[in-house]
Amino acid sequence: MKRGIHKIKGAKKAKKEPGESLGEKLARLFEIPADAYGNRPKVTAIGRGEVLIENFKGIMDFQNGMIRINTNNGVIKVTGDGLNIREITSEEIIIGGKISNIDYDA
């Protein structure tokens, strides 16, 4: 049962993802920067020690070696060593520590 629901959800996502919403298309047409419109996440990595993620929905998992963050485009997984959350607000999250991976769809 659970599996089934999961699969259906996954299938829905796969359908939605390649297409852009009308607003996003318009934004591209008028050459508005991608981060100015929409709620797609913006991931900024500064060096190796800091990752800033804007437009996130919430954190799913928080451990020393791995942090998973839920966003509109799926889950972003940050792995590394000694991870910590430097700052968290409703719009952005700053992750610090020695980062080794930033994975999408994990």
Binding site: F62, Q63, I85, R86, I88
Partner: peptide, 19 residues
């Protein structure tokens, strides 16, 4: 995680979170 999420939704600023 849930606690942190609720805090961030309620505009409670948290920083230097270490597990």
């Amino acid at each position: 995680e849930r606690f942190i999420n609720i805090c961030s939704k309620r505009q409670i600023l948290l920083w230097d979170i270490v597990r």
